[in-house]
């Protein structure tokens, strides 16, 4: 069942990307209601697509850039070395660039990798509050298109 993207979902994801973890925990608790989380994975996927498109389409999308970014993300967010699948991460980025259209990755791997890479991308962009709002607006717009 496809749900529309809500303001709460956008605010929740924004709080996570802005580093407002307390705010995130509060908003996430609000999403615990039944049906309130619907559409949230779509918003994460849209935000990941928007961030990866900005990073690799406009700033260079060679294989070296993709591999380097995936390595950097793993060094920062994969302490054990098994929490981020490098193949899945590269496949997702290549899919944003249009090189991959099909995949056999499971849902947990896809959503976990998307959220991890999205967090790394936004941290690298070092958005200001206004820029982050604009980014979230575009991500929500894309998510709305996907959910229509």
């Amino acid at each position: 069942m496809t749900m529309a993207i809500t303001d709460s979902q956008v605010a929740t994801l924004r709080a996570h990307l802005a580093g407002n973890f307390d705010e995130y925990q509060r908003l996430w608790a609000d999403l615990a209601r039944p049906g309130a989380k619907g559409g949230y994975p779509t918003l994460i996927a849209a935000a990941f697509f928007e961030a990866a498109d900005r990073r690799f389409t406009k700033g260079g999308g060679t294989d070296t850039d993709v591999i380097a970014f995936v390595g950097s993300a793993r060094s920062r967010f994969d302490e054990k070395g098994d929490e981020i699948d490098p193949h899945a991460a590269e496949v997702l980025i290549r899919a944003v660039l249009g090189d991959v259209t099909e995949t056999d990755l499971d849902d947990d791997t896809v959503i976990t990798t998307q959220l991890t890479l999205l967090t790394a991308l936004v941290l690298d962009e070092q958005f200001s509050g206004e820029q982050l709002d604009k980014f979230m607006a575009e991500a929500r717009k894309l998510a709305d298109e996907w959910t229509d």
């Binding site: 496809t2 959503i111 959220l115 959910t147």
Partner: peptide, 18 residues
């Protein structure tokens, strides 16, 4: 193309994202 391949939207996936 990306939406068709990698959009996974469900309560379970949302919990995994949390």
């Amino acid at each position: 193309a990306f939406r068709g391949a990698f959009r996974r939207d469900s309560e379970k996936v949302a919990d995994k994202a949390g």
